[in-house]
């Protein structure tokens, strides 16, 4: 199975196919150890996002490169984090990437969207722990399809 992640094997392929891979996705993932009550829930959302990213990346591995996760403290000042995110993507824009997407379940990024120098895709937390495994799968699958459509609409604009 083809993949395009930041691992040696995939990057070998990326370097060869550089002209075709013009889109990068950066998962924005919050974490913390402070609030026992929400620890499990937040960790679960992180898992959901990683499953989601894996599926999405599989569908579009020939054109999308999956960046390593951007982790930050849940309580951190977003204005500060945005600066750091910008410095991440500035390096990517310097490469021949035409599209940079951020993927997150943390809605607090939404306010800073215009400062981020990329397109924010905020996924509401629809998948919950109480869902059956098959339910989760079908929800993630349909979300992948919808987000895929969204990303493709950006590619259409290129033509």
């Amino acid at each position: 199975m083809y993949t395009m992640k930041w691992i040696q094997q995939d990057l070998q392929q990326y370097v060869q196919a550089k002209a075709y891979v013009d889109t990068i996705i950066v998962p924005l993932i919050p974490f913390h150890f402070s609030d026992d009550a929400s620890l499990e829930k937040d960790a679960f959302q992180r898992e959901v996002l990683s499953v989601f990213m894996r599926e999405l990346e599989k569908e579009f591995s020939g054109r999308i490169l999956l960046s390593p996760d951007y982790h930050y403290l849940k309580s951190a000042d977003k204005a500060e984090e945005v600066k750091r995110v910008r410095s991440w993507v500035e390096d990517s824009w310097a490469q021949p990437f035409h599209h940079i997407f951020f993927m997150t379940v943390d809605s607090s990024w939404k306010k800073f969207e215009q400062d981020m120098n990329g397109t924010l895709i905020w996924l509401p937390q629809i998948v919950t722990e109480s869902m059956q495994f098959s339910e989760r799968q079908s929800v993630v699958h349909s979300q992948v399809q919808q987000v895929g459509e969204f990303i493709r609409s950006y590619w259409e604009d290129d033509k």
């Binding site: 199975m1 993949t3 075709y20 891979v21 599989k58 569908e59 579009f60 020939g62 054109r63 590619w155």
Partner: peptide, 27 residues
């Protein structure tokens, strides 16, 4: 469904412009 170009997933009639063909959305 794995495209022989760079490994995206192709769909049957994935593009309205090309009915009766498999279409790869990446390239």
């Amino acid at each position: 469904p794995i495209c022989k170009h760079l490994g995206c997933v192709v769909s049957w009639e994935g593009s309205e412009d090309y009915p009766d063909q498999f279409y790869c959305p990446c390239h």
